[in-house]
Computed example of a mutant assay.
Amino acid sequence: MFPPRDQFQAGRGYLGACTLGIPTRNTRDAVLRDLEQWATGTASAHDYSAILERARGHAAALLGVGPDRIATGSQVSVFAGLAAASAPRGAEVLCVDGDFSSVVAPFLVRGDLRVRHVPVHALADEVTDATWMVSYSLVQSATGEVADAASVSAAARDHGALTLVDTTQATGWLPTTGLDADIIVCHAYKWLSAPRGAAFAAFSGRAVDEIVPYTAGWYSGADPWASTYGPGLHLADDATRFDVSPAWHTWVGAEAALGFAASLDAEAVHRYDLGLANAFRERLGLEASDSAIVTWPDADGADLAALAAAGITASGRAGRARVAFHLWNDDEDVDLAASSLGR
């Protein structure tokens, strides 16, 4: 059955996928089973490693790459930080004006890079021969605007620049298997409904060669269980060299969540979520869009307060009210939200 609303325990009035996803019943059960195994002393470190490798495979499917191109971690900013630390002194990094801090701050904190901010719609046109990397979110957190990733990638290739794309606000509702980028980063706790603390990234061959794995540890080797002690440096030849030691309990839930997302027809999810979002836009008198995130000016927070008073979970960002529609929602949620705003 599609959409699989029966897989979620709740969801009515929950328009917060862009802030925090709701776990499926299977994800919840996996976390509870793990808690019981941990509490009874039957949890196994080797079993956790097997779970992580299954999760890596699901992440690879969601990004349309092989598992050897996937690194697992905890936060988007850590992967972006590796890119920032690897940038040559004085290099230009092109960012979107108002983008999420995780893909901007790591470059700013260096202090010796030229970080340039432009509107998302102008991103491709602003790439030059001086640009070392373009770092941006595929879907803007504050506005829901979707970047033209194909044009950005083409411009970057033409000028020899690297690309870093954050799909945290995209993967799960927007198909992300066709992205041409050197580093694709995603935190799984929003649209993918995983526990917070599970992030993954896809690295191109060029990125594997040029980005330094400064966070290298025992999990950065081809066989982590043979990489637990010095004095030698143990680095895998592929993207797993960027792995960090996994937060075991988080990845138990993440494996279930990513497996569920990877099992779905991504185009069907896209059509469904976008259909609900545009139905809500129509009720508000807004033009149709290509985003499942709907935002509108709400400087005084009155609309956000009205949504909350009606029992709707929404959010406010950068002076705008923000709602998101996902698999646990339906037309009744559209009507509930619109009616609460007098529309």
Score class of each variant (00 low, 15 high):
L304C: 11
S289E: 03
T250M: 08
L341W: 02
G90H: 07
P106R: 05
V208T: 10
R56L: 06
P195V: 06
S49D: 14
H249F: 11
A338K: 02
D97F: 07
G16F: 03
A188W: 00
M1Q: 12
S86A: 13
A194W: 02
A201T: 12
E145A: 15
W251H: 06
S86E: 05
S289K: 06
G221C: 06
A266E: 14
E255T: 05
R241Q: 15
F2K: 09
F325V: 07
H270M: 02
S245T: 15
A310I: 06
D182R: 02
P297W: 08
D330S: 03
I51T: 15
A91S: 15
M1H: 15
G275E: 10
E332C: 02
S151T: 10
V334I: 06
G90M: 09
I51G: 03
D237H: 09
A277E: 10
V208N: 01
A288V: 02
Y219C: 11
T171E: 09
D68L: 01
A318N: 14
G98Y: 00
D182S: 01
E36A: 12
R56H: 08
V78E: 03
F107G: 01
G253I: 06
E255R: 12
R54N: 13
Q140C: 05
D112K: 12
R343L: 12
R281D: 05
D298K: 01
F203A: 01
L274D: 08
F2E: 05
A337P: 04
S141H: 14
T215H: 15
D273R: 13
V127N: 06
A154T: 14
F2Q: 05
A277V: 00
A55K: 03
D34R: 04
G73V: 10
L192I: 04
S153A: 15
D182K: 07
S102A: 14
D330A: 01
